[in-house]
Amino acid sequence: MSWFAILGIGLGSFAFKAAGMFGLGRLVADGWGRALGMLLPPALLSALVVSQTVSTGSNLVIDARIVGVVAGGLAARKGAPFWLVAVIAAVVTAGLRALT
């Protein structure tokens, strides 16, 4: 990733926070705008989960990843903290790859 992209995301992220903290965000804050801001993360994160679990590039692929991710997802559902969820997924996937 380029430095340009990193600085762009950094500046943009801070701009959102500062707009809220310094009152600029009030213009779009109420009602629908706020709700949309809260619903974007689950929509995008879910898309990331799907694309990183069952695809490589533009191809749909089923491999060891899905087993690890399901195991991690079940742990998350049981209330496991996120670091444990990530470790479970990695260990299960790596184990399956070592066996096959």
């Binding site: 709700a35 809260m38 990331l48 990183q52 991690g72 559902r77 990530a86 997924a89 996937t93």
Partner: peptide, 25 residues
């Protein structure tokens, strides 16, 4: 080799859990 590519999406699921507890999320 360490399964780190699967840790990514699983971690995203963990990040989503609070949002998933509400119907709109």
């Amino acid at each position: 080799r360490w399964g780190i590519d699967a840790a990514f999406p699983a971690g995203f699921i963990a990040l989503m859990v609070p949002a998933l507890k509400q119907r709109p999320g």
